Computed example of a mutant assay.
Amino acid sequence: MSADLHRRAVVADTHNDLLMAVAARPPALWARFFRDRWLPQLRDGGVDLQVLPVFIDDQFRPEGALRETLRMVEAAHVLAEGNADEVSLCRDGEEIDRALADGKIALVLALESAPGLDANVELFSTMHRLGVRVASIAHWGRTPLADGSGEDATGSRLTSAGVDAVAELERLGVIFDVSHLGASGVDHVLELATRPVMATHSSARALRDHHRNLTDDQLRGVAATGGVVGVNFVAGFLSADPGGYTVDRLVDHIEHVASVAGIDHVGLGPDFIREVSLELTPPCCEDMSALAGFDVNAVVPGLDGPRGLPLVTEALLRRGRPEADIRKILGENVHRLFQKELGRPA
């Protein structure tokens, strides 16, 4: 029953860093590497809608950040064009619906921390022209726009350029992503927002007190905008105890977000970082484990990549969740939000 439900549902993953692994290859291999390494995983996991974040490692910051951002955006276009029979890079809800109707995986391009843009908010318009439809403005540390959650002790809100960035993204129809933003920054965005915001990959702070997770008030705030919280699968964000690195603990977070924010405002933001991290570290990548305070390569058994997504459907059924709720969690909520908001100017 769970396999049939998973197959029939729209499954949306709001955060997978696979583009980093693709862009690490020579350009001539981008499309083929995606087809050989990642496409089978996405198909086996039933993924219908995949958000592709552009994240830049410290080796490229600051001088090479914008160049590497553009290179990764180009990689997304090349892999989509080279696999046009299987995927489609989508800019709005109509393009997503067309891709799904054709049996293709709908890809949506995102910026994670807006690397290289700095305080040049006008460059968000450039990124929009290139197909970016989701964006965040900080990662672990400080940017010219805001502080990431690793700087929570500062208690800082958005900079004036960050405030301008919120307005510009709303104008363009690029969905603002609060994941990784510092706690005060999240609250600031929720005060400013006039359009739905997302947390593409954040779990519940009430269940795991980590700065990367959202408080109940923040969960309610995202829901109040009409947005969606994609629950993060990274084991250390689910539990402080490795004994809690289980699918059931993940479902605890999903259930908590649903109970606080509402069933219409929860989705899946797996953040399948392990394969990408192991491929690229060392020597290129920053030490995410040191920043996070736990081993970021530790995984929930069975959920080390997209192939494990049917386990989530199975676990939700065991909890007694009705099919309609499970379909919303798996992807209907994200699909609905993208249909309504993606790429639509204010």
Rank of each mutant, 00 (worst) to 15 (best):
A161K: 04
S88C: 11
A31K: 03
S136T: 11
F55R: 07
L66S: 04
E63L: 12
P40L: 11
D164V: 02
T154N: 15
R157M: 07
A28W: 07
I137N: 03
Q59Y: 13
L123A: 13
F60H: 14
R129Q: 13
L169T: 06
A80G: 05
D48G: 15
S88T: 13
L70V: 12
R35V: 04
V121P: 02
L89D: 08
E112K: 04
V134D: 05
D57P: 09
G116N: 07
V78S: 06
A119I: 02
E86S: 15
V108D: 00
V134M: 13
E94C: 09
L70I: 10
Q59W: 14
E74I: 00
A76G: 12
A75D: 01
Q50A: 10
A165V: 06
L169E: 05
L145F: 11
F34T: 10
R43N: 07
E63W: 10
F124M: 11
E94S: 13
A167C: 04
G82F: 00
G148M: 08
S156F: 05
G131H: 09
D36T: 14
A167P: 02
R32D: 15
G131D: 11
F34A: 12
N120M: 10
G93V: 01
D44K: 13
V51N: 06
F55S: 05
M72D: 03
V78T: 14
F34R: 08
E170H: 10
L89W: 09
L123D: 08
A76P: 12
R32V: 00
R43A: 13
L130H: 06
M127V: 06
F124P: 05
C90N: 06
A161E: 13
G64R: 14
D58T: 10
P115G: 06
L158Y: 05
N83L: 02
D97M: 08
A167H: 12
V108K: 00
E112T: 08
L158G: 02
L79K: 08
D58M: 07
V54H: 03
G148E: 11
L100Q: 07
H128Q: 09
D97G: 05
R133H: 10
R142S: 15
R35Y: 00
P144G: 11
R142Q: 14
F33D: 14
F34K: 13
D36L: 14
E112P: 06
V78W: 01
A119G: 09
A167D: 14
L130A: 10
R91L: 07
F124Y: 15
E170R: 11
G45S: 12
V166L: 10
D92Q: 09
R67S: 12
I56F: 03
V54P: 05
P40M: 12
A106L: 02
A161C: 08
L130E: 06
T154K: 15
V121E: 09
G64H: 11
A110T: 09
V54W: 03
V51T: 08
P53Q: 05
A106Q: 01
V166W: 09
D44G: 10
A161I: 08
P53T: 07
A80R: 01
G150L: 11
V166M: 14
M127L: 14
H139A: 14
G82V: 01
G155I: 08
L158C: 04
G82P: 04
W140L: 07
S113N: 13
L145D: 07
F33V: 06
G141N: 13
V87I: 05
